[in-house]
Simulated scan of single mutants.
Amino acid sequence: MIGVTESSVRPETRVGAVFVPQLPPERLRSVAQAADQAGLDELWLWEDCFLESGITAAVAALAWTERLTVGVGLLPVPLRNVAITAMELATLHRLFPGRARVGVGHGVQDWMGQVGARAESPMALLREHLTALRALLSGERVTSQGRYVRLDGVALDWPPPRRPELLAGATGDRTLRLSGEVADGTILTGGTTVEQVRRARRLIDEGRARGERTEYHPVVLYLHVATGRDAAARMEAERVHWGYDTMDGHGVAGGAEAVAEAVRTWAAAGVDTVVLQPTPDDPDPEGFMAFAAQEVAPLVRN
């Protein structure tokens, strides 16, 4: 089961891929099954407003597959009461032990404002949410009178047998330090450069020292990837969409060799799971899963 361990040994690099939520939910089944059949390490889902639910999609993907690990990165905490998040994660990990990885984070602040959930202090909210969530998933009875998280003797009747890994999405310096201190791992957004990964690792380690954390802290990163027909043109559209001056250092377009070399580069900087993020208009999402699992991953591990 994926959970918290005291090991400080860095694991083997894992290769995943994203089911981008610009695809309709009914497409998930065929993509998840293609990923499972191809032997992909991890399939990642996003709870982006106002596209698709992370937990609902994760449960469906896990139920439709046999061995696939499914990640959700991330659940925006302003939208979620921590008790509900704990109940959902406990249920998820009891139904599918060892097959889910879930991260929480600030969410996009403009989106949070649209639904009336924008916090005055996102940092305080994330700290309180993560702290309470860890305790609840550990089977503790929690009372908290924080600025945002208020619980009165709350305990899960069905906590997971072992507290699962809790990831935090982070970009800013303070959030990276907080992730090192309170979370078990960190998710870095697509477009994060190699140098930014190295800097993120340093900030995470500052937080780990502050929190006296000694277990290994895995880092997950999304990597923009385009392959196959019109790969260069689709990647250029991504560059424009995300506002990069260049895609160099932010992503890669090309075949398996080029993508595997990029994965190795980011892994050498401190990333443990590189999740290939296809363009929303990728012509073959099922084929992309097989590309990641059967063409890229073997080259990364050789």
Rank of each mutant, 00 (worst) to 15 (best):
E206C: 12
P164S: 03
V102L: 01
G190E: 10
L74I: 15
E88D: 14
R198I: 07
R201N: 04
E120H: 14
V82E: 03
A132D: 09
R201E: 03
G98M: 05
V82T: 08
L137I: 12
L156M: 00
G103D: 06
T193Q: 06
D205F: 04
A83L: 13
G105K: 06
V115T: 11
L75E: 00
R198V: 14
P161S: 04
V104L: 07
V77W: 00
R202L: 13
R99H: 07
E128G: 13
S138R: 15
R199I: 01
E165K: 03
E181W: 04
G107Q: 02
M123G: 15
I187P: 01
F96V: 08
R118N: 10
M87Y: 01
L176Q: 03
V77K: 05
T85Q: 02
R163M: 13
T192I: 06
A117I: 02
L125P: 09
L95M: 13
L156P: 04
R201Q: 02
V82D: 00
T91I: 06
A209E: 15
A119R: 13
R213W: 02
V72W: 00
L203M: 08
V115R: 12
R80N: 09
G73E: 07
P161C: 03
R213M: 06
A100H: 03
D152W: 07
Y216H: 14
G113S: 14
R198F: 04
L95Q: 09
Y216G: 06
G73Q: 08
P76M: 04
P76L: 03
G105R: 08
L166G: 06
R198S: 08
E128W: 07
T131Q: 12
V108H: 14
E212Y: 05
L126Q: 14
R80T: 01
V115D: 09
V154S: 05
R127K: 14
V82K: 01
G98V: 10
Q114E: 14
R80A: 01
V194T: 12
V149R: 10
A83V: 13
V104C: 07
R134A: 09
H217G: 14
T192K: 10
L95I: 08
R80L: 09
G169K: 02
I187E: 02
S179K: 00
V142I: 12
L156S: 02
T189N: 14
R101P: 01
G73K: 01
T85H: 00
A90H: 01
I187L: 14
A117V: 06
E165Q: 06
G153S: 07
L89G: 09
T143R: 10
A117N: 11
P218T: 15
G146T: 12
L126R: 05
S138E: 15
L79M: 13
E195S: 15
A168F: 05
P159R: 07
V82F: 01
A83T: 15
E195K: 08
P161N: 03
